[in-house]
Amino acid sequence: MADLKHIYFQTLRIRKIEEAIAAKYSEQKMRCPTHLSIGQELVPVAVSHFLTHADKAYSSHRAHAHYLAKGGDLVKLIAELYGKVSGCTAGRGGSMHLSDLECGFIASTAIVGNSIPLATGNALHQQLTRAEGLTVSYFGDGATEEGAFYESLNFAALKSLPIVYVCENNQYSVYSPLSVRQPTGRSISKLSNEIGLKSFSVDGNNPTQALQTSQAAINYVRHHGKPVLIEYFTYRHREHCGPHFDDDLNYREQEEVQTWLDNDPLNNLEKALDKDPEFKAFQKLAISDINQEIEQAFTAAESASFGSIEDNERFIYD
């Protein structure tokens, strides 16, 4: 139960942060394309729960939750969205190129599938240097259509690399459903298994299952030094890119949307914790702590300055 409360706190925190971004986005001060993880927050929380500082992570365009769950600095994230010098890349990368080396979040990148090989290379480095720790590679269902996905998994299996591939299958790539992109009935986890990885598939919005599977998979990598892939089924609540709901466009069946809203990870956690007599008090405190932290991050971001244009030519080369 103690664990679950911690999981709840982390999930709630990411939800509140993403909602705060959404609420302020229309002010047009966060001037960069932003892909929110609302509805999908439990996955990185359940993964990160079993990670240590020595473990590294790479991610994609939809990276806020991955960054935060790994321990990425909130103040630097919000400042980055505002393009300020105090942001995690001083405003160079924006929402789609995050990094916080201190917590082991190496980078997120914006081209679909293109951080999967990088994560695999990180795992190769860990293996070659006998470093402690493994690598996590986050991506979506769309990314599994890129050649780089197959090529990376093949290499990881060939070399027995210590890597956890995390596929957040939210069934859409922008407005395109899986049905126009992959053959019906084929499973990403089974496919990965055939490539040579141990693979898992699980409801990524179900707290107990998501936690158990994450733990089993990560333990497997730690004990056997071999790659795994976990396919988490989940769902994005809002539009692909931007702060709004977009179900008025009718690209997703209403019934499907409702089913997933009923399977919201945060609600599921609340239901699971409801019997705990201390939960209500815990929740109240959590909300107020989180709100305060968010307010501080936004105030800091808004009052920070932009970097100097004079510095734009720094770091083209080392």
Partner: peptide, 16 residues
Amino acid sequence: LPNYPEPTSYGLTKEY
């Protein structure tokens, strides 16, 4: 364009 990548920030792209 200058010979460096476009930064994302509003403040850094004013003269890009």
